[in-house]
Simulated scan of single mutants.
Amino acid sequence: MPLTPPLRDDQGKVIPHDHPEILNDSGIIRRVHEEFVVTDPKARSGRRLSTSTLSASSGENGGMSVDLEQLILEAGQVPADYVTTPRWIASVRFQAHQLRAAGFQIGYDPVPESPTEQANPCHGQVWGNFTKGVQKRLLKQCDWLVPHEGADICCE
């Protein structure tokens, strides 16, 4: 069942919101690319995810881009396959309640097809204050959906 369409501002951008149809036990997936991996001698593997993995895009109404697992499953797709591409080589998964407990809003933000972007009807955003401390705490709470070979999520 598709989610209720989100409200948009005058420029067509989704207004930050906490979508009530995204349940607390819903999976929230953040895609990972190689730029999010840093060298860290404290990590078991010597490499780990940077806190920048969990950051919002710049600009008005900018949130952290995520994929909503419940929509991927409802579309009959395998979440790990859906989010993995040559650019997005790994991914981490939260439950919505973890992000909400940290003070974030999670909203539906489907991406339409455009000349520069492929459609993503399962796209969402996470809005809130992404401080370094919050980013570190959240990285300790998430799990790999698709592991990055040779990197840890965090070093502690």
Rank of each mutant, 00 (worst) to 15 (best):
D25T: 09
D25E: 14
G27W: 10
G27F: 11
G27E: 02
I28E: 04
I28Y: 07
I28D: 04
I29P: 08
I29L: 10
I29V: 13
R30K: 14
R30H: 04
R31S: 11
V32Q: 02
H33W: 06
H33R: 10
E35Q: 08
E35L: 04
F36T: 00
F36I: 00
V37Q: 02
V37M: 02
T39M: 04
D40L: 08
D40S: 14
D40C: 15
D40E: 15
D40V: 12
P41G: 08
K42L: 14
K42H: 12
A43G: 12
S45A: 11
S45N: 05
G46F: 11
G46P: 13
R47W: 10
R47P: 03
R48F: 07
L49C: 11
S50W: 05
T51M: 12
T51H: 11
T51D: 11
S52V: 10
T53E: 04
T53G: 03
A56F: 00
A56H: 12
S57I: 11
S57W: 09
E60Q: 07
N61L: 07
N61Y: 15
G62W: 07
G63D: 12
M64C: 11
S65N: 08
S65M: 06
S65W: 05
S65A: 15
S65P: 04
V66A: 05
V66T: 08
V66Y: 05
V66G: 01
L68Q: 07
L68N: 06
E69G: 04
Q70K: 07
I72H: 12
L73K: 15
L73Y: 00
L73D: 13
L73E: 14
E74G: 05
E74D: 15
E74F: 09
A75D: 15
G76T: 08
G76P: 05
Q77R: 12
Q77E: 15
Q77F: 09
V78M: 05
A80L: 00
A80I: 06
Y82V: 00
